[in-house]
């Protein structure tokens, strides 16, 4: 059995291993809408293969990451809810 560790999805601790993608960790946290489109519609992953860009989120402070293409690593901080261009949620709230 692979070693389990924790990542944080919007500050909630989620137990994963190194075969878990960040997108799957976010879905495990009960989050379906990863980000908002330009007109404010919630979107989540579609293609699962790094093409559609709908699964973007902020990983360790870096916005706009394709979460379906990234493996979880111990202590990763994942934040969802950014605007379509990948800005951090704090910036979004200021609009």
């Amino acid at each position: 059995m692979r070693e389990q560790f924790e990542v944080r999805v919007n500050r909630e601790a989620i137990t994963v291993d190194d075969t878990t993608t960040v997108a799957a960790a976010i879905l495990r946290a009960g989050v379906a809408g990863f980000r908002q489109s330009p007109d404010g519609h919630w979107r989540g992953p579609l293609c699962g293969m790094g093409i559609c860009a709908e699964c973007r989120a902020t990983i360790d402070g870096v916005p706009g990451q394709y979460t379906c293409q990234r493996w979880c690593r111990p202590g990763m901080q994942i934040v969802t809810g950014a605007a379509s261009d990948g800005e951090a949620p704090d910036e979004l709230e200021e609009r």
Binding site: T19, A23, A32, P45, C47, G48, M49
Partner: peptide, 17 residues
Amino acid sequence: PNVFGVGGIQALAKGGL
């Protein structure tokens, strides 16, 4: 959200969904 591709949901499942 939660409308996935067919290959898409399989990829997500293999990734731990």
